[in-house]
Every structure is written in C-alpha cells, then in structure tokens.
C-alpha cells in the first residue's frame, strides 16, 4: 500500500517537484545561495505550506493566529522563496532578482522578507527562541504551534542542547523540532565530524517525543507534522526527516562537500530538464 501510494503522483509531490525546480532557478540567478542545503528540505517546506499543516496568512504575515515557523538553518531556506512568492507573500518577479542590488531576497533570508519569522543565518539560535515563543503562547492561552527547522550539522551547536533540555523541562508540547537529517555538514559527512546517531535515542533520553519520516515524501511529512501539531502530552516533539543533501541533483547527492558546491547557471537548465 505504502509503495503503491508513493508511486502515485500526489498533488503534494507535484508541488514539491515544482519547488525543487524553482529553487534551482533561484540558484541560477544567485550563485551565492546554498543550494544543496536548500534542496534537502524542499518536501518539508512543501508539506508545511501546502499540506494543511501550518496556519498562515500571506496578506497579514504577522497575524496572531499563525503558526510560528523558525528556520534555524537559515542558509538552507532558498527553497522557501518560490513557495512564499507562490502563496502571495511577495511578487513572483522578485525571484528573478535574488541577491541583486536593492532586493530584499538575500543569500540568507532575514525577516525583512514577509513570511520569515526571525533572524537566522548564525546556527543554533532557533530552538531557544522557539522555546521562548512556545512558553509565551502557552501563557497567553493560545493554541498555535511553534515549528523550528534545524539541520543535523547544526546540532553541534551547544545552544541547541540548552534549548532541548529546557523544552522538556517545561513540557512544551506546542513546540515541534523538525530535523533535516541530510547527513552532511559543511566540510564532511556528519558521521566523520561529530556522529550524533542514534539521534532518536538521545532526544528521547532528554524527554522528547521522537518520530522519524522519509523527508522526501511530502505526504508522509504532512501526515506526521499534522499529527504532531494536534497532539498534547506535556512533551516537546521532534520529527527527524531523513533527507538527502542536494536531493535531485545527482552530482550533489553523494558529495561530502555538497554544502559549498555551486551548480553553474548553464548546468541548471539541463538538470531541471532531466527531472521531467
């Protein structure tokens, strides 16, 4: 059943394929962007925004009823640009000007961009800030959920674990940590730098509810995220999304240095063509 459904071309899979191509087009325009890191989380963003997971309002980005999404792996969020443009947060024409003079779409996003919640780009800040937001929402008696997206390489930052300890101590069941486990940090595979596996056991030992999912199946992601959003239980939740860094670009997928690789503009079109 599972296999059969995956083979079907679901609306979310179609959307994710479109997001991947659009992210590559952004990279074609702006070579400074971190494309491999932005490709591993394409399905995560697709599930969040098109899979009825997040509550949001493109015409009032600061709407109090929105779910909060902190993209702690800030550099890896270029794939969110086409989604935000598609949803109406800003004009699609802006995608042709990423990193250009006078634009607001930089190589690493900032909250000058409608739809981005916090300043990121320096790693390890999102989980703690998310804890503060989650406590604030609880004290205000509000029902919104705080999602924080981190990379697995980012988990080496000590401040992440200060927040991990804090979240379980305070029973923040309105906090969902999504870990984009693409197994590659900047200079090497994570297992050759600081191997955090078995990560599930570590987080469970810290008092978190932990599950994992195929991070390139947007339907499974949407189901998992919706389930986590809807459940209470006095424990923060982590969803480990198993992904491939540089997903969709064969030359990046097995490269230990994919983080710092660029795809030359003239190559992008043929890569997109090969995806059809």
């Amino acid at each position: 059943m599972q296999v059969a459904r995956k083979e079907m071309c679901s609306p979310l899979r179609t959307k994710a394929a479109w997001v991947r191509k659009e992210a590559l087009r952004v990279h074609k325009v702006a070579q400074e962007t971190r494309i491999a890191s932005s490709l591993s989380c394409v399905e995560i963003f697709t599930a969040l925004f098109y899979g009825h997971v997040l509550r949001f309002n493109p015409y009032d980005p600061a709407w109090e009823g929105r779910d909060r999404l902190i993209i702690s792996k800030g550099h890896g969020a270029i794939s969110l640009y086409p989604i935000l443009a598609d949803l109406g947060y800003f004009d699609r024409k802006e995608l042709d000007r990423v990193c250009g003079e006078g634009t607001f779409l930089g190589g690493i996003p900032d909250p000058v961009i409608p739809g981005f919640e916090t300043v990121n780009g320096s790693l390890g800040h999102g989980p703690g800030v998310g804890c503060g937001m989650a406590i604030a929402l609880k004290r205000k008696g509000r029902s919104e959920t705080v999602f924080v997206l981190v990379g697995d390489g980012e988990l080496c930052e000590g401040s992440v674990w200060e927040a991990v300890m804090f979240a379980s101590m305070h029973g923040l069941d309105n906090l969902v940590l999504i870990i984009d486990r693409n197994n590659v940090s900047m200079l090497d595979f994570c297992k050759n730098i600081i191997d955090l596996n078995p990560l599930e056991e570590k987080l469970r030992a810290f008092g978190w509810e932990v599950s994992s999912v195929d991070g390139h199946d947007p339907d499974d992601l949407a189901l998992a995220l919706s389930r986590l959003k809807g459940t209470q239980g006095n424990r923060p939740k982590a969803l480990i999304a198993d992904t491939i860094k540089g997903k969709g670009v064969p030359s990046l997928e097995s490269d230990a240095l994919s983080h710092i690789r660029n795809i030359r503009p003239e190559e992008v079109d043929s890569i997109i063509e090969a995806m059809r």
Partner: peptide, 23 residues
C-alpha cells in the same frame, strides 16, 4: 519567573522568543 539553569545562551534566546510575542 523562569530559571533557565546555568545557560546564558538559552537565557537570551528564550527571552527573545518571549519578547517577540510581546512580553
């Protein structure tokens, strides 16, 4: 009142999250 523990980085980060929500 929250004692975040001996964790100044998290002290600032949690404070930020609270302040972004208007506290």
């Amino acid at each position: 009142f929250i004692n975040v523990g001996i964790a100044e980085q998290n002290l600032v980060n949690v404070s930020t999250g609270l302040a972004l929500e208007g506290f």
